[in-house]
């Protein structure tokens, strides 16, 4: 790039000025609330001044109800991510290596949920898989017994999440797969690799990072999910999203709600860090290119 230094200096002030507002918003609405949340949940102001206290965290980790909610959140996350990857990876690989009209239709279908608001999906879920839903109707017309509806069970949110997150997972994986060139695959076939050898030695090592990115993305989403667990999941134990809302709104306990929020931050820290790092890296690589 060939910008003169003098021009740079003049533009430096303007640039800073232009980014000031959004940066200030991030600082006051993201960074500051997080710092406050961590501080306020750790510092208790008693009659003899402020002091460090882990009381609210101790409460969370000893409270059976809270721990049950955390456990169901982790369970839902693990199950959803596993199912999602089991579905999204084959679809992404298929879309990478097959061209044609059928593949275009598959891609359109896989991307479609991106354009369905989760609230509509939740409603559709109830009408299809809920009691007396479409599946029951179809089974009934064949004289078969009704299904055990996943509605209001832990499986409800899982199905919703998988459906809702399929497009972005496929899209992220496809972006990763675009790094696997046809020649790289052909070169492997040439030296004698069969389908499985190509999958395990050539494709998976190259999209490993994309799988982690997609996983991080989904994990972060699941830990803050509200609509699906609230509408489709059981009332108790409930996932962290509805739990935090109830603690904040109904129980009116902002300190405990913040404690719960900080705990989700900590659990997701690895994924958040990884997600940010990979985006930053991607960006640096593209800038270098």
């Amino acid at each position: 790039m060939s910008i003169s230094v003098a021009q740079d200096r003049g533009r430096g002030q303007t640039g800073l000025l232009l980014v000031l507002l959004p940066v200030a918003l991030v600082a006051t609405l993201i960074i500051w609330p997080i710092v406050r949340a961590v501080m306020d949940t750790l510092i208790v102001t008693g009659p003899d001044g402020a002091s460090l206290s882990f009381a609210s965290y101790r409460f969370f980790f000893t409270d059976a109800h809270s721990m049950g909610n955390l456990r169901i959140t982790i369970w839902t996350t693990a199950v959803s991510v596993s199912i999602l990857m089991a579905i999204a990876i084959p679809i992404a690989i298929y879309l990478r290596f097959v061209t044609g009209r059928t593949a275009a239709v598959v891609q359109a279908l896989a991307i479609f949920p991106l354009f369905v608001p989760s609230i509509i999906l939740a409603y559709a879920f109830i009408r299809v898989l809920g009691p007396n839903g479409m599946v029951d109707l179809i089974l009934g017309s064949f004289g078969l017994p009704r299904i055990r509806s996943p509605y209001l069970t832990p499986w409800g949110p899982v199905i919703g999440f998988v459906w809702d997150n399929l497009p972005l997972s496929v899209v992220i994986l496809m972006a990763g797969l675009s790094n696997v060139t046809n020649n790289a695959v052909e070169a492997a076939r040439d030296v004698g690799a069969g389908k499985f050898a190509i999958l395990f030695h050539i494709i998976l090592p190259r999209i490993w990072l994309s799988i982690l990115v997609a996983t991080s993305f989904v994990v972060l989403g699941l830990f803050s999910a509200f609509t699906f667990p609230y509408l489709l999941g059981p009332a108790a134990p409930e996932m962290m999203g509805p739990f935090m809302l109830r603690t904040f709104g109904d129980v009116m306990d902002p300190v405990q709600a913040r404690t719960q929020a900080v705990i989700t931050f900590l659990i997701c820290a690895v994924f958040g860090w990884f997600y940010v790092r990979s985006i930053a890296k991607n960006r640096a690589r593209r800038e270098a290119a």
């Binding site: 060139t181 020649n183 790289a184 052909e186 070169a187 492997a188 076939r189 040439d190 030296v191 004698g192 690799a193 069969g194 030695h201 050539i202 090592p205």
Partner: peptide, 15 residues
């Protein structure tokens, strides 16, 4: 994978 041929690609295609 079963032919006794080996190909060198334009883009070298190294893994």
């Amino acid at each position: 994978e079963r032919r006794p041929t080996s190909m060198m690609f334009q883009s070298h295609a190294l893994w």
